[in-house]
Design a protein around this nucleic acid. Structure first.
Lengths: 351, 351
DNA sequence: CTGAAAGCGCTAACAA
DNA sequence: TTGTTAGCGCTTTCAG
């Protein structure tokens, strides 16, 4: 393989056909060609010349260079999306929506990955170097120094799925705390007494906020968390949680309700609980998930869960970002979107 | 909202700090600054000047413009990934791998969406206008006219997950036909007689090739397809397939094995078959899926399936693309990657 | 309505 | 080792 490569000519990219070529072909000036390909307001070029130019362009296969235009205009029409990982249907769906909607609005998406370990500095600088017009930062918090760096470059950032801690950063995020409160109150209302929590990765603010909310909801009824398991966002992790709650535990020490960080986790929890420990859901234990992923609707689960209005969230984030791009900044927007509890069949009324 | 916007100043992007500014600050020429920020071979700049320049750069917060560099060098270090939709774990995972690996190799990913209906022309032109260095086209076939368009622009394309029909286009694709044959032979070997197929969307070559392979595998034993259901790639669609095969059908007309286009579909099929029609899997009916998605390993399914080596496929595609970018083209590479059958517990030996 | 010319920020050949 | 200069392909005054 190496051998083959060595024998092969290195490639030299040839000059691309430019507006100058079109101008020559059409017998007009380059400026006029530029005018024609600039569909802005009041481009005053005669019908006749336009046609000549279009014909010439088609003939020699001309297509304007976005790069050169970007250099001139100091704007790229590219939005950088910085992502940590696609580890759930939530991330996948939101990325899909972002890129589709941005494309619809005339922007293109530059996809950048955060290293799984280590800091986000280099990734962010990369986006800045590419002179993206704006940045969507998913599931991560901008540090204040990085935030001011972005300000230096006049590049707006909107955090998505993470409430911004740093005062100046705009963000769109589900109100995880309130969702937690809602779940807690709901369970309390239905007379649950021993409530457990299965969280996601340590330190994820999403996870922490939901827990705090849940505790608040319980606290109002004088209850506190009965048990907790800290794992990941996978089915597997839900199984381990069930092991931890039921394995070698006397039945009267079981929780009577469990709130899981994700539908996937909830499903794993249910599967393991049912098949290994003979737990009846919801008769013995109620379960609540999060996301309202497709699997929550499957007939064997009919999972009670909290739905996130992903579309709304994405649209909000795009609106905010494009406003920041087009208009002078006037204040910070931190949008909290409420989730909504979707009652199905995995929670029992114990009254 | 509209009101608010009207009151707000339109934003004018200010000039960014450039190498000229650094040069002035450091008291050297702009070219020298450029040399310092060009970590190429033998940049002969004295230690002293380098330090002066770096200090100045840091002071005024300079960061080179990739755009200007791209214009000059006629190369952007951007790879365009053209995607139709993220509708399966396969697409999600491969996109994740692509962007991570490309980033590791010094490239950045421009994500472009194919319209769900309509042609891919405009999307492809968009990539060309951005002067991407190369294109990964996922789950779609390049037409020959578009292919030659790309050649005009000297922009290599590698098709991913679709065997290229047009002679000149490179591609990396699972050998779906062979996988179909393998599944067919396997089922025949285990003495199945009435074999059904649950396909994906109409016209998807992936789906068609697997079916043809399956038929070939059966044909060798003098068998042909007993029944078929054409749906989508979802759990839901698997349920409908079960309805179609078992609903109002006498037990002795049931298939004794079913090959599903996707693990998700297979799981839907199994769920519905078990819960609604009382079918025992695999005693009554064997089931084979595709992808070896995480759910295939769940204890309640232990799905026999075909695994796709996504990592290998992605790496191959990247290798081919980067070679095409760096070296003069010498022949077309159409890589067929074999899948591998993963026997678990949903197929019964009927000998 | 159209052309000439300057300049966006950078690289690279050529001189010094 | 460093500076001068000429572009890369485009947009945009400013004249005509």
């Amino acid at each position: 393989m190496i051998e083959k490569r060595k024998m092969v000519k290195r490639k030299v990219r040839q000059r691309r056909v430019s507006s100058v070529d079109v101008a020559r072909e059409a017998g007009v000036s380059q400026a006029t060609v530029s005018r024609v390909f600039n569909q802005k307001k009041g481009t005053n070029v005669s019908e006749e010349t336009v046609e000549k130019i279009m014909a010439a362009a088609k003939k020699i296969n001309y297509r304007p260079s976005v790069i050169a235009r970007s250099l001139q205009e100091n704007t790229t029409n590219i939005i950088g999306i910085i992502n940590r990982r696609f580890d759930s249907s939530f991330h996948m769906k939101s990325l899909d929506l972002f890129s589709r909607e941005l494309q619809k609005q005339g922007y293109t998406t530059l996809l950048l990955n955060l290293p799984l370990d280590g800091s986000m500095d280099s990734t962010l600088y990369k986006a800045l170097e590419y002179q993206v017009d704006g940045i969507i930062l998913t599931s991560a918090n901008l540090t204040s120094s990085l935030a001011s760096e972005c300000q230096n470059y006049d590049t707006p950032v909107v955090q998505f799925n993470r409430y911004s801690l740093y005062q100046e950063v705009d963000s769109v995020c589900l109100d995880n705390y309130r969702a937690g409160v809602d779940v807690g109150s709901y369970l309390v209302e239905l007379n649950h007494k021993r409530i457990g929590y299965v969280s996601g990765v340590v330190g994820s603010s999403t996870s922490v906020d939901r827990k705090k909310g849940l505790e608040e909801g319980l606290g109002r009824a004088g209850l506190s968390l009965a048990c907790e398991y800290v794992g990941g966002m996978t089915h597997q992790s839900g199984c381990r949680a069930a092991d931890s709650f039921f394995g070698g535990v006397a039945k009267d020490s079981w929780p009577d309700a469990v709130f899981c960080i994700t539908d996937d986790v909830a499903v794993g929890f249910i599967d393991q609980a049912r098949s290994i420990y003979g737990v009846n859901i919801p008769e013995d234990v109620s379960v609540v998930g999060f996301d309202d992923a497709p699997i929550a609707k499957w007939p064997q689960y009919k999972l009670t869960t909290v739905s996130q209005p992903i579309e709304t969230m994405v649209m909000e984030a795009i609106d905010i970002l494009l406003d920041l791009i087009k208009y002078e900044k006037s204040g910070v927007t931190k949008k909290m979107i409420p989730g909504s509890l979707v009652p199905r069949s995995t929670v029992k009324d114990r009254n």
